[in-house]
C-alpha cells in the first residue's frame, strides 16, 4: 500500500500548492505595514479602510455588481428560453446552434476581446456599459444553457402529458410544471453566469471605458500602474465573493440543478 500513501502525499502537496497563494494573501491583507512579509509585522484593517473610503474602488465595486447583475438577468432570460427551445423543439440546425453556443467558450479570450473591441468601436459600443454587458453575456450564457439543459434532461415528459390530460393549456403547463422543476438548474446557471461576469477580466480590459472599471480591472490597474497594497484587500474581497457563489452553486447542485 506504500504507493497509495505516496500518491496520497503527492496529492496533498499539490492541493497545498493550489490553495497556498490564496491563503497567503489573506494575512497579507491585514498587514499593518506596506512591506509584504509573512507573518505580517502588525495587524490592521487599514487596507480595507482605504478600500472602502476610496471613490475609485467603490465605483469599481458598484460597476462589478451592476454589470454582473445585468449580465445575469440578460443571460438567464436568453439562456433559459434557448435551452427550452433546444430541448423541446426539433428544427434543422439544432446541432449547429449547440456548436455555436460552445464557440465563445473555446475561443481564446484575447481573440474574442480583440474582435469585440474592433466591432464595438465601429458602432460606438466600446467603452459603454451596454457593450460591456453584451460582451459578458456572450461568454456567460453558454453556462446558463448547459445548466438548464442538464436539469431538463432529468425532466420526465410524462408530467407534461399528465398536465395536458388534466386539461391544462400548454402555457400553464409550462409555467406550473416545467419551470418549477427546472428552477434549480436556472438558478445554478444564473449563479455561474454571475460568477463568470464578476471575475471576468480580459474582455473588460479592452471594452471598459474609464467610468466602467470593474473590480478585476481596477485590481489590474493597481498592480500595473501604481503599486498599491490595497490590492491584497481587494483580492480577498473578490475571493470571498467567488466563494459565496461557489457555495450557492454547490447548494443548488445538491438540490437538482448544476452543470453536469
Amino acid at each position: 500500500m506504500t504507493p497509495r500513501i505516496l500518491v496520497g502525499a503527492a496529492a496533498g502537496l499539490v492541493l497545498l500548492f493550489l490553495l497556498a497563494p490564496i491563503l497567503a494573501i489573506l494575512p497579507l491583507s491585514f498587514s499593518a505595514s506596506d512591506i509584504l512579509r509573512l507573518p505580517p509585522e502588525g495587524w490592521s484593517l487599514r487596507w480595507y479602510a482605504a478600500l472602502l473610503s476610496s471613490e475609485r474602488w467603490l465605483l469599481a465595486a458598484r460597476n462589478s455588481l451592476l454589470v454582473a447583475g445585468a449580465t445575469t438577468l440578460l443571460g438567464t432570460v436568453l439562456g433559459t428560453l434557448a435551452a427550452l427551445g433546444l430541448h423541446f423543439g426539433r428544427f434543422p440546425g439544432r446541432g449547429a446552434v449547440l456548436a455555436l453556443l460552445a464557440a465563445p467558450v473555446v475561443t481564446p479570450s484575447i481573440v474574442t476581446a480583440a474582435a469585440l473591441f474592433l466591432a464595438y468601436s465601429a458602432v460606438g459600443l466600446a467603452g459603454t456599459f451596454v457593450g460591456l454587458v453584451l460582451a459578458h453575456t456572450v461568454i456567460s450564457v453558454p453556462f446558463v444553457v448547459l445548466a438548464v439543459l442538464a436539469s431538463l434532461r432529468s425532466f420526465d415528459p410524462a408530467l407534461l402529458r399528465a398536465a395536458a390530460s388534466l386539461g391544462a393549456p400548454p402555457a400553464a403547463a409550462f409555467r406550473r410544471v416545467v419551470l418549477p422543476l427546472i428552477a434549480p438548474g436556472v438558478a445554478a446557471g444564473a449563479v455561474f453566469a454571475f460568477a463568470t461576469s464578476f471575475d471576468e477580466f480580459i474582455l473588460t480590459l479592452f471594452l471598459a471605458g474609464p467610468g466602467q472599471f470593474t473590480l478585476p480591472r481596477q485590481i489590474y490597474a493597481a498592480v500595473r500602474d501604481v503599486w498599491d497594497p490595497t490590492i491584497c484587500a481587494a483580492a480577498v474581497l473578490l475571493f470571498l465573493a467567488s466563494m459565496l457563489l461557489l457555495l450557492a452553486s454547490e447548494a443548488l447542485r445538491r438540490r437538482g440543478g448544476g452543470i453536469g
Binding site: 434557448a82 423543439g89 426539433r90 465563445p104 456572450v138 415528459p157
Partner: peptide, 27 residues
Amino acid sequence: MRRGGLPAFLLVLPLLALLVLSFVLPV
C-alpha cells in the same frame, strides 16, 4: 415530447441573435 419546429426556434432566436451579432460577426 418534441414540439414543432417554429415555436421552439423562436425561443432560441433571441440568444442566436445575440451570439451572431455579438460574437460571430465581430470575429
